[in-house]
Amino acid sequence: MSYITVTDLQKTFTVRKKREKGHLTREKTLVQALKGVSFSVERGELVGYIGPNGAGKSTTVKILSGILTPDGGQAEVGGRIPWQQRKEHVRHIGVVFGQRSQLWWDVPIADSYALLKDIYQVPPQQHQKRLNELTEALDLGSLLRTPLRLLSLGQRMRAELCGSLLHSPELLFLDEPTIGLDAVSKLALRDFLQFENRQHGTTILLTTHDMEDIAALCSRVMVLGHGSKLFDGSLADLLSRYDTQRIISLRYDGDCALPPLPAGCESIREGDGYRITYAPQTVPTAQMLSLLQSAGPIRELTAQPQNIDHLIADMYREMDL
């Protein structure tokens, strides 16, 4: 029996739209946020959950954390049905909603943590130990007495994460935790999540639009689109289907025009060099290189795979999302 089992989960929202003008009634449309999604997750897994905006990711997270009641289907987390045993269930989970805050705006974050301690009924000693561990790992020690409103976005996100993990949840939902963070904060956050996952065996479900988060953290990815699950497997498998293009950036000595390229290749001028996109299956790399060399002496050349975001964009396009 898996830790999380979701079978044929469905949820529909009613969206009332205002007509352009001159009508007293609003237009009602039903939006199917989830059209029968099924998956299972084992204890200790770190799973990425991706898909374009409005795919139903957050809805899944909200159902699994007991906030929303689905319209159909089943879900169990550690043997509990989240929306039916809400209070018992939420004791064991932690949630980070990247765009919202759980800490109190005007009071020092340590006070918010003390409140969380009482809410989750964590024994004082255990709380202190966990707090020490988290403040060290997240580098929050010097900020504990600072009110939340005075923290930077990166500091705030670390503080939020600490708040969500204080009661040592066995399952952590992360809804876009790296949104708006700078590179250093992102890297630190990723390291921390990996540490938490290894050290405590915390099961983590990560929703994000940042593909590098996924690449760095998740051994498994699920892709959601239009309320249905489209892919479930390793990131490498997912990418190999779309990873068909290579990019060459080069500069010639002096001013050289590019030779005419075979069909299916693209080139753009980039500063005083060029940037060429081609598919090695149709035009072998050796052929491409000799073609480029024939135009003149090459001073500089780099070859690289396509950016992961492009791959995902291609994938979404192909899946018609």
């Binding site: 954390s65 209070k87 004791r91 949630v95 909603f97 919202r100 705006w105 809410i119």
Partner: peptide
């Protein structure tokens, strides 16, 4: 005002996942 804002912006989600 904080509570009103929570409801308006959806931050109430956090309070809904507390065992309370």
């Amino acid at each position: 005002g904080d509570l009103m804002d929570k409801i308006r912006t959806g931050s109430i989600a956090y309070d809904l996942c507390r065992p309370l």
